[in-house]
Amino acid sequence: MNIKMYVNNEKIIAGMTMKDREELEQGNMALHVCLNTDHVIENRKKLATSLACEIDNFVCTNQTHSAHFHRVTLADKGHGAMSKNTAIADTDALYTFEPNIVLSSFTADCVPVIFYNTVNGLIGVIHSGWQGTIKEVAPKLFKHLIEVENCNPSDLHVQIGAAISQEKFEVDADVYGKFHDLGYANDFMYYKESTNKYHIDNQLTVKKQCELAGIPLDQISIDPTCTFMSPDGFSYREDKQAGRHLSFIMRKE
């Protein structure tokens, strides 16, 4: 199985599954876009084995490009792991203080954000497509963690996973306007006269959101892999029938 491992130490394991032509449905991890649900479950079980846990340790959501987040408890274990009907509804970000739970986020061009707190054991994932970015799903979650969960942003480490590149993410003026209205994304956009399109770097916009939340820059990493151009990437822009990557994090105990 093609897994890009971002963190793997005695406390945290985090990464992102990539397209793999040797696997069922090329390693697709999403039940909402698949040819056969059994194939996806088999792929997830393989991932669970590689993480030395069971598929019942996974927690998955029904992502809706919202700014909604959910604190995962032990009662949520297994939600969405085997069936999309049990996934946590209308949610695009998860966090937990519980060990041995695999928080999951699904993307095919959107920006996956994986984060952890080295002091209090908090872990989390965020699905930030362009709609989530302009709704500020990441800043809203970090604000909640700081104000409600008493997290110090300087203790947070962030990994921004593989996503569509600025070169391949072209949009019309309406989407450009929404990013412009954020007030901090102008450095991450350019206009291409030949196509009358704007190009936006969603990864760098999300990185800026993390920075504005108070997370130290040297604790924010970006995977430069473009999901559109890389043979290891699932891209919705390239293929509407594309599978999905699964970005994951688990705190070991």
Rank of each mutant, 00 (worst) to 15 (best):
I13D: 02
V206L: 08
L35N: 15
F58I: 10
R21V: 14
S104I: 07
L246E: 07
Q131K: 09
P112V: 13
V40A: 05
K197S: 07
I126T: 01
R71D: 06
K197C: 01
Y95V: 06
C34N: 10
H180Q: 15
M82T: 14
Y191H: 09
N8K: 10
E22H: 15
I114Q: 00
R251Y: 03
H199A: 01
M189P: 03
F169E: 05
C53D: 12
I220L: 03
K4R: 11
L141G: 00
E136W: 14
W130V: 04
A108Y: 08
F142W: 06
K240S: 02
S165L: 13
A242Q: 03
A173H: 11
Q203Y: 04
K208T: 09
K207G: 02
R237C: 07
F169R: 00
M5Q: 13
Q203H: 09
K178T: 10
Y190P: 07
C60N: 04
P231H: 10
H65S: 12
G214P: 04
A30D: 13
P112N: 10
H32G: 06
W130E: 11
F248I: 03
M5D: 00
K84R: 13
H144I: 02
K84W: 08
T64K: 11
L24H: 13
A52Y: 15
V111P: 04
Y190V: 00
V72A: 03
D223V: 07
S247A: 12
P224S: 06
K240G: 05
V125L: 01
V206I: 13
V119C: 14
K84S: 12
H144N: 08
E23M: 15
Q131R: 14
Q203R: 15
L182E: 07
E149W: 07
N43R: 08
A87S: 14
S221Y: 15
T118S: 11
L122V: 10
A67N: 15
Q219I: 07
E211S: 14
G183W: 07
S230N: 09
V125N: 01
A87L: 05
S83K: 07
R44V: 02
L122F: 06
P224H: 09
N152H: 05
I126H: 09
G129V: 06
Q63W: 06
A242L: 04
L182F: 12
S194W: 01
F58W: 01
A89Q: 10
T37L: 08
V33P: 00
K46S: 11
S66V: 06
D38I: 01
Q131A: 10
K207R: 15
P153R: 02
Y184A: 06
W130Q: 10
S104D: 12
F142Y: 11
G27D: 02
D20H: 09
D218V: 03
G80S: 09
Y236D: 11
V171W: 06
S221T: 14
E98C: 12
E136K: 14
F58G: 01
Y176T: 04
L141V: 09
I146W: 02
H79R: 03
N100M: 12
F106E: 13
E136N: 13
L217Y: 10
N150Q: 10
D223M: 06
T195A: 05
N57G: 14
C151L: 03
L217V: 13
G177L: 07
G124A: 05
Q203N: 07
D201R: 07
I41D: 05
N85I: 11
P231D: 12
L47Q: 03
V40L: 00
A138P: 00
C151K: 00
G214I: 02
Y190D: 05
L217N: 14
T37H: 13
C53Q: 10
K178Y: 08
F97P: 01
